[in-house]
Amino acid sequence: MSLNVLIVDDSSAIRKILQRVLRQVEAPISEIFEAADGVEALAVLESQKVSFVLSDINMPNMDGLQLLSEIKNRVEFRSLPVVMITTEGAQNKVLEAVNLGAAGYVRKPFTPEQIKEKLVGIV
C-alpha cells in the first residue's frame, strides 16, 4: 500500500518542513502534493489520489476549516483523514475542527515527532 499526502499551508516554509518530516516517517509515502490554500487543495483532490491531508487553518481564499467542511460534505472525499496543523489553539477552533471531522490537531510550533506520531496513528 502506498500513500499520497497533501500538505495545505500558505507558508512555503511550513510546506518545506512538513515535506522533510514526511520523508522521515517510516510509512510507504509515495507522493507528496502541496497547496497554498483550500481552493488549490480541492483542485489537487479532484485530480489526484490522496490518502490523507495535513492542513493549516488560517489561509487566504479558503481557510482550513472551510476546506475540512468541503471535504466532509463531499461523498468522494468524506473518508479522507484530515489533520489540522495550526497556530490556532483557541478551544472553539479546536472543537469546530473536531466537530467537522478532523482526524487530529497539532499546534504550531511543533516537533517532527508530534507530526510523526499523528501520522503513524492514521497510517
Partner: peptide, 28 residues
Amino acid sequence: DEVLDAISELCNMIVGGLKTTLEEQYGP
C-alpha cells in the same frame, strides 16, 4: 524569499500563541 517566509512563519507562531492566551481571558 525562503528566509522572508521562514521569519514571517516564526512571527505567526509567536503572535498566534499570544492570541490564543489572550482569547482565554478576553474572548475571540
